[in-house]
Amino acid sequence: MTEQLEDDFWAQERARDTAARGKQADPTACGTCRGRVAAGGQVKHDECAQRATLLPAPDAPGYELITGLSEEELAALPPRFHTPAFMESSSPKLWVCAVCWGDGWSTQWPCATAVKHGLRVFTPEHEAETAAKKQAVRLAELEPQVDRLDHLDRITLPELRREIEHHKDGKARWRKRAETAEARVTELEAELAKYVGHEPTIAEEMAYLSNSLDAVLALCHETKNSGALGVTPEAVEQAASGEWTATAPRPALPWAAAMDDHDLGMFLDDLASAALNRWRTDIDGPVPDRDTLAAIEQACQDWRTPGRGLRGDEPGTGEGR
């Protein structure tokens, strides 16, 4: 009795499945069958019934494309590509996704994409062909852009690169000039800091003028001894600014070296007289060395400074000798 009930149950299920199997018309079905299906009935002809197949979509990606994509990119492919494929050579044998695989790994079917989209995985063949045609049309539309991009890559981009390099070189040159200018400003500021707030005293100014005069006299003395035609203004300026250096040993007292023999003798007499104070004594004892030094400096100043009436080269003094 139980076996009879089970046979009746499965007979009913098979009949129900057979009845439902003919309620989907193939896109190529005749008009009669399409009309019967639209009215809720079954197809009249078996060849007009739509049948499920495990054939890959006409536009399914090939081996090269699949191996070039990451796992995330493969999962994002259209649902119609995630069909089952039977791995007969594997152990154990199993169904895997046709696109969710890579080097050393595979995904058992149904993959996550197939589970997510369900029936959309088994796309009717005519829809896959339509998608392939749309892709072909889109590729035809993109073909001119590919040519344009190729032109940009071969001609325009190299010119842009050259212009960029040119601007980089110009920027580097201006940066170098700016750095040089900043260094010069820093140098001038340091030079200015030497003088601002550090004005020379009268004694320092007189010492500078004295050194400049000594340098000019030394230049004249060297010119005279070397038999040169004359002293140029440039040489005098260099001597006064300290830029000129005598080729011959510079006299310690160039103004004395420039005297004639008579004046030089008179100067040396005064200098010797002042130096004798070193061995003189007075009521308080020996003359202090600093007094002797002051007397020597006074003698040098009297003979060096014009207008004291001592040197024979002064106006009105040479005739009396």
Rank of each mutant, 00 (worst) to 15 (best):
E3M: 10
L5Q: 15
E6C: 09
D7Q: 09
F9V: 07
W10A: 03
Q12T: 11
A20F: 11
K23I: 03
D26H: 13
P27R: 03
V37H: 05
A38C: 01
A39C: 04
G41W: 02
G41E: 10
V43E: 05
A49M: 08
A52T: 14
L55Y: 05
P58R: 04
A60W: 02
P61I: 02
E71P: 02
A75G: 12
P78I: 03
A85M: 08
K93D: 01
A98P: 11
G102L: 05
T107E: 15
Q108E: 12
P110V: 14
A112S: 14
V121C: 06
F122C: 00
E125P: 14
E141F: 01
E141M: 13
Q145C: 05
V146Q: 11
V146N: 04
L152A: 12
T156P: 00
L157A: 09
R162F: 13
I164G: 11
G170V: 00
K176A: 13
K176N: 10
A178S: 02
T186D: 14
E187I: 08
E189G: 04
E191R: 10
E191P: 02
A193S: 06
G197N: 05
E199C: 05
T201H: 04
A207N: 06
Y208K: 14
S210R: 12
L213S: 15
A215V: 03
C220S: 05
E222V: 08
K224Y: 11
A228Y: 07
V231I: 13
A235G: 04
E237M: 05
S241N: 15
S241E: 08
G242V: 07
T245A: 05
A246M: 10
P249E: 09
R250H: 00
P251C: 07
P251S: 03
A256Y: 08
D263R: 01
F267Q: 01
L268M: 14
R278A: 15
R280W: 07
D282M: 00
D284G: 09
P286W: 01
P286Y: 06
V287W: 02
D291S: 13
T292W: 10
T292G: 10
A295H: 15
I296K: 12
A299M: 00
A299P: 11
D302R: 11
G309E: 01
L310E: 02
R311M: 03
R311L: 05
R311Q: 00
D313T: 06
E314F: 08
G318V: 12
